[in-house]
Amino acid sequence: MISGLGVVLILSAGVGMGVFRARELWARPRQIRALIQALSALETQILYGEMFLADGFRDCVNGCGEDAVKKMFLYLSERLTGDRRCRISEAVTAMQRRMKSDVSFGQAEWNVLIFLGEQLGRTDCNETEKQLRLAVEQLKRIEDTAITDAKRKGKMSIYIGVCGALMMILMCI
C-alpha cells in the first residue's frame, strides 16, 4: 500500500516537474505575443493620439495579461517621466539590466528592443510607424521560432520528467 503510494508520488513529482519546465518554455512565446500586442497598441497611441512615448508606454499595456511585459513598459514610462533628460535608449538598457531575470526573453528579443529604443521618438510619425512595424515583424519571426522550440522542448521536458520518475522508481525497487 505504502510502496504503491510512493510510486504514485514519485511519478506525479516527475510529471509535475516536466510540466513546470514546459510551462516555462511556453512563457517565452506568450510574452513575445504580449510584446507584439503592446507595440501595436503603442503604434496606435502614436499615430492616432500623437501621445508622448512616456504616456504611450503606460497606456499600451492596459489590459495586458502578461505581468512581466506590463512591468517592463511601466518601468520605461516611469523612468522617462521621472527624468526628462533620460533618453529612450538609456531607459531601455536600464530596463534590460533590471528586468532580464523577470522575463523569459532571449537575446534576439532584447536586440529588437534595444534597436527600437535607439530609433524611437527621433523621427516623424511615418518613420516611427515604419520602425514599430519592423520591430513587430521581427518579433513575429522570433515568436514562430519560440513556438517551435517550446513545442519540441516542452514535450521533451514532460517525457524526461516521466522517464526520470520511472527510473527512480526502478532504482528504488
Binding site: M51, F52, R84, T123, C125
Partner: peptide, 16 residues
Amino acid sequence: ERVISSCCHHSRYAME
C-alpha cells in the same frame, strides 16, 4: 541635440 530631444519628451513625432 539632447536638450531638444528632452524638450520634445523624446517624441518628435508629437511635435512634428
